[in-house]
Simulated assay, not measured.
Amino acid sequence: MFFETMFTWMFKIALIILICSGLLVANIYFEVNFPKVNRVNLDSGKIPPGSKLSILQITDFHNWHPTDRHQKLLRDIRQLKPDLIVITGDLVDRKTVNFDNVFYLARELVKINPHTYFVCGNHEWANRKSQVFLSGLKNCGVIVLNNGHEVWSNTQLAINICGVDDPSTGRANLDKATKGINTEFLTVLLAHAPAIVKKPSITQADLVLCGHTHGGQIRLPFAGAVIAPGQGLFPAYDKGIYQIGPHTTLYIDSGLGTGVMPVRFLNRSQVSFITITGK
Rank of each mutant, 00 (worst) to 15 (best):
L42G: 07
F103L: 08
K36D: 07
N173K: 03
N98V: 13
V102W: 04
T275N: 09
F99H: 02
D60G: 11
L157T: 04
G163A: 02
D60I: 10
R78N: 14
L207I: 10
L250N: 00
C20L: 14
A106L: 08
L233T: 00
L207V: 00
H115C: 15
N154S: 15
H70K: 03
P221C: 05
V142D: 00
I202H: 02
A177H: 02
V271H: 09
V260H: 13
P48A: 10
Q243G: 10
D238C: 14
R78S: 04
A205G: 08
N33Q: 06
G163E: 00
L207S: 00
D43L: 10
T96Q: 09
Q243W: 09
I47N: 08
G45H: 15
K239V: 03
I252P: 00
D68W: 07
K198N: 15
L105Q: 01
T96K: 02
T275S: 14
T178C: 14
L186T: 04
D93I: 13
G230Q: 01
Q204A: 11
P114D: 05
G224M: 02
A228F: 07
G45D: 15
Y237K: 10
P194E: 09
E4A: 09
I143D: 06
T178W: 07
W152M: 13
S272P: 00
D60W: 06
L42F: 08
D68G: 12
G141S: 05
I16P: 08
D43G: 05
R75T: 13
R219K: 11
G141K: 04
N101Y: 14
V188Y: 01
V40Q: 08
I77A: 14
V40D: 02
I85W: 05
V144E: 01
L189W: 03
N98P: 12
G216R: 03
P49Q: 11
Y117A: 05
N41D: 14
D165Y: 06
F11W: 07
H212A: 01
T249C: 04
H123K: 12
N33S: 03
S21W: 13
V271G: 09
Q156D: 14
S153I: 13
D253M: 00
L134F: 04
G89M: 05
D165H: 03
G259S: 13
G141A: 02
Q270I: 09
S130T: 14
G45S: 15
H115A: 15
N41W: 14
Q217G: 00
L137A: 02
L91T: 07
N182L: 04
I252S: 03
Y29I: 09
N33L: 07
P194D: 00
V142C: 07
G230I: 03
L145Y: 01
V208I: 01
